[in-house]
């Protein structure tokens, strides 16, 4: 190879930088097979419905003294200790916002799915009690918003963290959660294997599809469920500084597009990801109400929990070729 360009400010890369060992048909890893959505067998939802609507409410606890290990999660403390401003604004979601949102769901006739940090049910047994009475579907959402499952997390520690989270939620709700959502949708290289070993059936971390698909682990297959980040409330309103009204419009536009596509191509899923500390604010709630009213007014909509949607999908994957596609 010739000499480095004399004026380049960059450290050189070796010739290995021009090797492409994972350049092969399909993906560059073995977690799932390459498959385009339009090539799959059309899915039919119960009663011939077209669009499954999964309203997902995350209930989170952000500790005042986060370790930030192995990485900091979005939404956590960002001011010098003690960051009362962010701590209390997040906690607002669990004291006020969640009740406002549950009322909005009830009014709209929506059954939500709740992704819960396990620490929260220990801290707030009254909230846990209400959730237990409502018997909404619960997704395990790790321990807190300071337990990132990310590269650098020790495997044994991660297995313990997963077990502790699932055990705590199981005890609180009398039922083992079948779904998992990693905080910040981050994963370590072992997360899918460890949650599968712990009894989880589906998880919601990978945003690469609008429909479920089969995800391989060392201990058998998980179902990857499509929980959007791109029009998640926190992403749109907090990270991207867009208005509440725009968020509602985005949900409505997504609903229209997915319904139209479902009419041509088979069942689709509209996930509506919400966070109690974001959309539970008084100036935002009416936009949640408007979006939900719009979605629920559409013919062909099936509001269901993530677990129900996952089960309905799995029930149709009888063909091995398709389930592995």
């Amino acid at each position: 190879m010739s000499t480095q360009s004399v004026t380049s400010p960059h450290p050189p890369v070796d010739d290995g930088y021009l090797d492409y060992p994972a350049r092969r048909y399909g993906m560059d890893h073995d977690r799932y097979a390459w498959s385009m959505l339009t090539d799959r067998k059309p899915v039919v939802w119960p009663d011939g419905k077209k669009l499954a609507v999964w309203v997902n409410l995350s209930l989170e606890h952000f500790p005042l003294n986060p370790s930030g290990k192995p990485v900091k999660l979005p939404g956590g403390m960002s001011m010098p200790y003690p960051d009362l401003r962010h701590y209390t604004l997040r906690d607002y979601g669990n004291r006020v916002g969640v009740y406002r949102l549950l009322e909005a769901f009830d009014k709209a006739g929506v059954r939500p799915t709740l992704a819960i940090n396990a620490l929260l049910v220990e801290r707030y047994p009254q909230l846990a009690g209400l959730i237990r009475e409502r018997s909404n579907d619960v997704i395990a959402h790790s321990w807190s918003m300071d337990t990132a499952h990310a590269g650098g997390l020790d495997e044994v520690a991660e297995a313990e963290l997963i077990k502790r989270s699932i055990d705590t939620l199981t005890k609180a709700f009398g039922k083992t959660p079948s779904g998992w959502l990693s905080p910040g949708k981050l994963e370590s290289p072992n997360t899918p294997d460890l949650i599968k070993a712990a009894g989880i059936e589906y998880f919601c971390d990978w945003v690469n599809d609008d429909m479920p698909y089969v995800f391989q682990t060392k201990h058998g297959d998980l179902t990857a469920m499509p929980l959007s980040t791109e029009f998640e409330d926190r992403f749109v309103v907090v990270d991207n500084f867009q208005s509440e009204q725009s968020w509602a419009e985005q949900v409505m536009d997504a609903c229209d597009l997915l319904l139209a596509e479902a009419n041509e191509q088979g069942g689709r899923i509209l996930s509506i990801p919400l966070h109690a500390w974001v959309m539970g604010q008084p100036h935002r709630i009416k936009h949640v109400e408007a979006a939900l009213a719009y979605v629920m007014s559409k013919p062909g909509v099936w509001n269901a929990s993530a677990g129900e949607i996952c089960a309905a999908w799995r029930g149709q994957q009888t063909d091995d070729a398709n389930i592995n596609a």
Partner: peptide, 18 residues
């Protein structure tokens, strides 16, 4: 993010799958 950078990788894969 450290490997595996699931959020960044998976949304880009969405482009090809969907």
């Amino acid at each position: 993010h450290p490997y595996p950078a699931v959020p960044g990788y998976s949304i880009r894969d969405y482009g090809n799958r969907v």
